[in-house]
């Protein structure tokens, strides 16, 4: 007599087993392989007496001062606005000494910009990038005086964040779309390793044609960040490594807690309707005798 619920054949089990194994392997790989390389970290912001804003950005290599391990360290920025992101990179004078390595940006008005650092470390080309949106209290000049009059630098960022209006206030739970293109050609998907210090599931590559072009990254929600104020940010770093000794690019996102992910509209509306009904009933009950004509 045949079984009512037959056990699946061996062949039918092979495929899911492979999928689970690969997924576990990928998760495990992502869990231990991410070691951030050249990374830009946002430092302190200070409002100057004239209303301008001075912001400091630090550069680290494996968490330490890159001045020891790297050479040809250079900084660039691409000023613009959230409505019109900048098109050209301009060189910025950085400072790298025995103590620390970084760059100071002084702006007036409101500037949305990308900041890029590149360096050669151990024979490997590294690029680090971040975005920021600074609001100074004065009305201008719009861009940093030291960079505005320079000629655009002949560099190209390998990893580019596709501009979107929401980037003026990056949040957890928001999806960021990145394009990757190094040396004018797309590497094969298998040659590229994307990693992040966030949840491994937050990354997903879009390699439709076998080529690696772009991927999405969604920083996961963070309870520690939620407990802080809405102005607090957490650093999320995405890293793309091309081959074993190929170029490495990182992108630092300073994300706020999500504004609306924790909104419970139905609960709020139910509370609102319930209290309004209760309040109306109480008024009618107690004031019935003393209505003003």
């Amino acid at each position: 007599m045949p079984e009512k619920y037959p056990w699946p054949s061996k062949n039918r089990l092979v495929r899911p087993a492979w999928v689970v194994a690969v997924a576990l392997l990928l998760a495990a790989t992502n869990a231990w392989s991410f070691e951030e390389s050249l990374v830009i970290h946002a430092g302190n912001h200070a409002t100057l007496s004239d209303g301008a804003l001075a912001a400091r950005y630090h550069l680290t290599f494996h968490g330490e001062n890159p001045a020891r391990a790297c050479r040809d360290i250079a900084f660039f920025w691409r000023p613009g606005s959230i409505f019109k992101p900048g098109a050209a990179w301009f060189a910025l004078p950085g400072h790298c000494d025995a103590k620390n390595c970084g760059v100071d940006i002084r702006i007036g008005g409101i500037v949305f910009f990308s900041l890029l650092a590149q360096a050669q470390c151990g024979g490997v080309q590294y690029q680090a990038q971040t975005i920021d949106n600074l609001h100074a209290r004065n009305v201008g000049p719009l861009a940093d005086a030291t960079a505005a009059n320079q000629k655009p630098a002949a560099i190209r960022a390998a990893l580019e964040l596709v501009p979107a209006m929401e980037h003026y206030y990056p949040q957890t739970g928001m999806t960021f779309l990145f394009h990757y293109q190094n040396k004018n050609e797309n590497p094969a998907a298998g040659q590229v390793e994307i990693s992040s210090d966030d949840q491994p599931t937050a990354l997903s590559a879009l390699d439709e044609h076998g080529d690696f072009r772009s991927f999405r990254f969604t920083p996961s929600h963070d309870q520690a960040l939620n407990r802080q104020g809405s102005e607090a940010t957490a650093e999320r770093v995405v890293q793309v490594r091309e081959g074993a000794n190929g170029p490495v690019s990182t992108f630092t996102l300073n994300v706020h807690r999500s504004r609306r992910a924790f909104f419970h509209r139905q609960g709020g509306m139910a509370l609102f309707a319930g209290l309004a009904a209760l309040g109306a009933a109480l008024v009618v009950y107690y004031k019935k005798q003393t209505w003003r004509r």
């Binding site: 939620n226 407990r227 807690r257 999500s258 609306r260 924790f262 909104f263 419970h264 509209r265 609960g267 709020g268 509306m269 509370l271 609102f272 309707a273 319930g274 209290l275 309004a276 309040g279």
Partner: peptide, 23 residues
């Protein structure tokens, strides 16, 4: 009109806000 459960402070304020608005 939503209750914001990001943390205890936002939750308390949003419940207060909705309650005060209803009353």
């Amino acid at each position: 009109l939503a209750i914001n459960s990001a943390n205890a402070i936002t939750q308390t304020f949003s419940i207060l806000s909705v309650a005060i608005a209803a009353l």
